[in-house]
Nucleic acid binder design. Structure first.
Lengths: 345, 345
DNA sequence: TTGTATGCGTTATCAA
DNA sequence: TTGATAACGCATACAA
């Protein structure tokens, strides 16, 4: 019977032969060098280099029922917010032995569930999912998964395993408090997509307005359409049509805020004198616009970085001091909410 | 000797047993149903459903030296341009049996080479890479790869295998022709990052200016810094400092163009009367800004979609009519280049 | 610390 | 069209 030919590249046996040891010793030398004597380790490393040996990840995954893949599931590929976190994850994993398996749930919980099921089937080394609003089935899958799981971008008091994010409720509240303090009177909300995190931002915002005696449900305008700059413009135009006395808006995110700014400019409304605008996330453009736009800064890059660091720590056998990392947020007060005759108290 | 326990989920043997056939028949029934009789196929499909069987991809990859992974390498995760293409790739692959393996080369050719090497090692079903400016080594790797390869976002007359994109040179030229036609006299270029594609855009742009008798090398301003809205503002400010008579700019991309717009507004320069601005890619925000911004529209989503379609076709044994697909671009003329007293000829 | 035997779940090979 | 058997390359269990 003729032998099957593999991919042609060197295998662990080739390395073992060249180094004069058994395959398992090579395997150990590569995965946990401390388990192999210095002498052999050196010979093995030499052989690896000479042969330009790269472990076959599929064979490894099959034998160990564990792959070096870290599953990452985000709700959007085009939303800058997740792009920053993703970039951090890739940056942090660039050196290491891990591969990213990226899934796009498109803001659909059922799709996320499907992806989690698929990814878990590959025996990932860890999982990173966005938000805390998984379906019950997803939660259960993840809770029973034999790998670290990090929920990112949000926090709650009931993590599946670990969490890195910030409170969207508090972020929304801070935006509301800011507008109230600046003396704006008829304060509205412009919300696109309205995924769970946007919802909590809105709730926090409402609470701040209520406390400040400025809450008016008619000024809360939301849609499930995905957010965009043009949508921000349309919504503020619509809202102003019903309520011309509107004098400030908190936008769901920065794209919407930029759109709202353009909308005001088109309508000849002065920002911030006649209309205060505040966004969320503080994308780079917020500081560069004219007038510059106030926003709630969140550190998406850091979120991705910390998530990976936690995973690495757990995989190294360490126990992280905290399972929940609240990275907070920071109000970036800029021209769009700087009224000259501010009535700050 | 005790048996090793796997992940616990059903295997192909379980299905085979339940259907009363051999494992290889199950394998065939799943991969190429036409090779199995209707009778058995039905029994097998029943068993698969009953057991909720999902093939173990690692085992499959190991045995066949071919995985269901499609490797995708982009130079940036945060650049909207690639995000759109990525989204299309994911959308188009959502149903199918394929997984995306995403790599971020961060605009570094050597990193791309490393990623290609790694991905190819996993025996991907196909590869998608951005641009046509791979290193020689990368090209060789890809040319020898036993899978379809698609270069996206750009085109040349020398594809590794297949291509979907458009001519950046022509795109840049179209921008130049437009500004010349609009009667602008002292026309500049603002370029960030200056990756190979940006470079070709600039070259096309220069050519148009030369033909129009408007080329002035002193007005070409480039930097290797990554593009951003604020950078667009800084560059135009700088350029105007040296050359206050500047009356139009072509920006490398839309972020830069938006920044240039803000920069002008800050400086009290009227757009488009005193300064014409044109961007590249036509992101959604370009139409929503005030004034709206002229740009060269490219269909990034379609690029991703077509790339995947080509791959699927080839994998299905079809031969695509064309190896190079030029999706072109389209000038979106908006307010930022609409001078009232336009001297269009 | 090192090695032997064997299994991980699938597919390629060859035979019927 | 279907099946028996041997790979695929590595890691686990156990022994030395």
């Amino acid at each position: 019977m003729r032998k099957r030919k593999g991919a042609g590249r060197p295998t662990i046996s080739d390395v073992a032969e060249r180094a004069g040891v058994s395959t398992i010793t090579v395997s150990r030398a590569l995965r946990d060098p401390s388990k192999v004597s210095d002498h052999l380790r050196r010979k093995i490393n030499d052989a690896v280099r000479k042969l330009n040996y790269v472990p076959h990840s599929h064979a490894s995954a099959l034998a160990s029922t564990r792959s070096n893949v870290i599953g990452v599931i985000v709700p959007s590929l085009t939303n800058n917010v997740f792009a920053d976190t993703l970039r951090a994850i890739y940056d942090e994993l660039y050196q290491g032995p891990f591969q990213v398996q990226l899934g796009n749930s498109r803001y659909v919980a059922k799709d996320e569930e499907r992806l989690v099921r698929t990814f878990l089937g590959q025996g990932p080394s860890a999982m990173i999912v966005a938000g805390v609003d998984q379906t019950d089935a997803t939660r259960e899958l993840l809770e029973n998964a034999e790998c670290p799981v990090v929920q990112v971008m949000d926090i709650s008091d009931d993590p599946i395993d670990m969490m890195v994010g910030f409170s969207h409720f508090e972020g929304g509240r801070a935006a509301g408090v800011h507008l109230v303090q600046k003396g704006y009177k008829r304060i509205g909300f412009l919300g696109a997509r309205m995924d769970p995190r946007s919802h909590r931002r809105m709730e926090g915002f409402k609470e701040a307005l209520r406390s400040g005696g400025r809450y008016d449900p008619d000024l809360m305008m939301t849609t499930t359409d995905s957010s965009s700059v043009s949508l921000g413009g349309h919504l503020i135009e619509q809202l102003r049509k019903c309520r011309p006395d509107l004098d400030a808006v908190f936008c769901n995110n920065d794209d919407m805020a930029l759109g709202a700014l353009f909308g005001c400019q088109k309508a000849g409304i002065s920002v911030p004198d006649e209309m205060g605008i505040i966004g969320f996330n503080d994308l780079e453009m917020m500081a560069a616009s004219y007038p510059s736009l106030t926003s709630i800064r969140t550190d998406r890059y850091q979120i991705g970085k910390r998530a990976v660091q936690m995973i690495k720590a757990v995989l190294d056998g360490e126990t992280p001091e905290q399972k929940i990392i609240d990275l907070g947020f920071e109000l970036q007060c800029r021209e769009s909410t700087m009224r000259p005759k501010s009535k700050a108290r």
